[in-house]
Each structure stands twice: as C-alpha cells, then as structure tokens.
Design a protein around this nucleic acid. Structure first.
Length: 270
DNA sequence: GACAACCTGACC
DNA sequence: GGTCAGGTTGTC
C-alpha cells in the first residue's frame, strides 16, 4: 500500500510519539510476518530506548540502544499505528511493542508485510536495502536523467524499479508521468534528456505534494496515528479510468503494465 | 517483458 | 463466481 509519502508520514508520526521511550514488552502474535533470519532475540529489546526512526525507500527503520534495529516493510496493507486504546485481539494484529507511554502496533490484512530484527551495523547489508537506488530527493536531476535513460523498458516500470530510484510505487508513477506529460509506455531510453530533467522535477513535486497532504488513502492506508491521508482527493489519473481528464476533458485510459493498472490521459501524455 | 505466488477483503 | 487492490520476488 504505502509508497514514499505514506511511509515518510508514518515515520514522522512514530518519531513524534516514540523517540526516547524504553521498550517495556514485545509481542509477536504471528510469526509469518517476521523474517526468519534474526540478529538477536526480540526479548533483548526490552529496556532499550528507541533512538531514532528513518525511512529508506518504502522501508521504515527503527533504531534502538545497543545497536538493535528493526526494518519494517508494509507492502500492500501493512499499518504501523501508535495507539493505547486498541484491544489486542484484532484478527490482523501481528506484532506490537509496548513502550513506557505508548503502544506501537503492526497490522496487516494480507500478511505481505515483513519485520526484520537486525543489528544496526548490518542494516546497510540487508538484501532489500542494499539494492535500493537513490532517494528521489537526493539524486541530482542530471544523474536522474542518466540512470533513467540507461534502462530499456517502459518508463513507468523504470520509475517503479526500486534499484533505479527508491520509493516510487503505482500511484506516484502514474501521477508523476501525468504531471510531466509523458506516456507510461514510452521506453525510458527514447525519452529526451530535457523531458527527463522535467520528469525529475515533477516526481519531486508530486511526492512533496503528497507528503504535504499526509499521503493517499485510496484503500487501506492510515498514518501513524490511525488517520487517513488527503492526497486521494488530489489525484489526477490513478484510479480515474473512464473519467474526464481535468486538464483537457479526454477520457482517462487504463492499461496493464508490468502486471499493474496504469492510468493516463491519451491527449496530455505523449 | 509477462506471470504466478504470497494473502484477505471489497465489490460487481 | 470473477476482478481488483499504494509491493516484491522468482520463474519462464
């Protein structure tokens, strides 16, 4: 479910609520969401303070004292919510940490999400993190144009390729390409350097706007406080199949690309 | 590249 | 009953 703006919003919410608190207890309700390779026993978290919380691509990183860390990927329906009122017997609650003042709960309807108990010094070598490309807000526009142009597949698939750029998923790939006026099916390598420089600007613009609106709650997404985002109300093409393009009135088209629904305006995007 | 797999729920 | 869903990974 969550892409960069959603994961970043959650990271900020968790940061505000949890930093500095000690772990009182940890509960794994469902082992299937825990990656089998662990650097330490979860009981070791008890008594340790949470030092900082980061995001890398769509991964959330929790750092505790004594070099203990947790990597969390929410995949499609995962949620990380700070809540003290929630009962523990929800069907989709798989993991939670009791802190001094708050409780952090991990829910996931489809159980695609994963939690990894890893030592801080090995985080960079975790298989999923090690392969991630640069963050869209860190990469320079010239470098962006370079790495995108080097790929020989549909530009939407390049944008969603986490090894090229980290954090862009189905919603923001569609929205960024609409903003830049580029058809999702165009081969990356055939898009001009000028167009790619513009695209990078629109990618950052789109992600920033989504961030300012606390992410998109199209289906399941809730922020770290259990509230919906607002960006779903500002979406131009994603999920608007058959509706009129707000820019030109043409009917928004839906095709399948890389197995994912892809939405675009046949008139505005060439 | 396309496709199935991992899962559950919503909707037609 | 079938289709679809903010993701990733492995197999043709």
């Amino acid at each position: 479910m969550p892409e960069l703006p959603e994961v970043e919003t959650i990271a900020r919410d968790l940061r505000a609520a949890l930093i500095g608190q000690s772990v009182v207890d940890v509960f794994i309700v469902n082992e299937t969401i825990v990656e089998p390779e662990r650097d330490y026993d979860v009981a070791q978290l008890i008594g340790k303070r949470i030092k900082h919380i980061d995001r890398r691509g769509k991964n959330l990183l929790l750092y505790f004292e004594y070099g203990l860390a947790i990597i969390c990927h929410l995949k499609m329906t995962g949620r990380l919510i700070v809540d003290n009122t929630e009962k523990n017997h929800d069907k989709h609650l798989h993991f939670w940490i009791q802190f001094e003042k708050n409780r952090l709960l991990f829910y996931d309807t489809r159980k695609f999400g994963r939690i990894c108990f890893i030592s801080e010094k090995r985080i960079g070598r975790h298989a999923r993190l090690a392969r991630l490309g640069p963050e869209p807000f860190d990469i320079t526009n010239t470098r962006f144009a370079q790495v995108v142009k080097a790929r020989h597949k549909a530009i939407k698939l390049t944008l969603m390729d986490q090894e090229v750029i980290a954090g862009i998923g189905n919603i923001y790939a569609d929205e960024s390409l609409f903003a830049a006026g580029i058809r999702p099916t165009r081969k990356s390598s055939t898009v001009s350097r000028q167009q790619l420089l513009r695209l990078h600007w629109h990618v950052r613009q789109t992600l920033q706007k989504a961030l300012d609106n606390r992410g998109s709650s199209v289906n399941d997404y809730l922020d770290g406080n259990g509230r919906k985002g607002n960006f779903q109300n500002l979406i131009e093409v994603y999920g608007r199949t058959g509706a009129a393009c707000r820019r030109c009135g043409t009917t928004i088209k839906r095709i399948i690309l890389g197995g994912r629904s892809t939405h675009y305006c046949p008139h505005c995007q060439r």
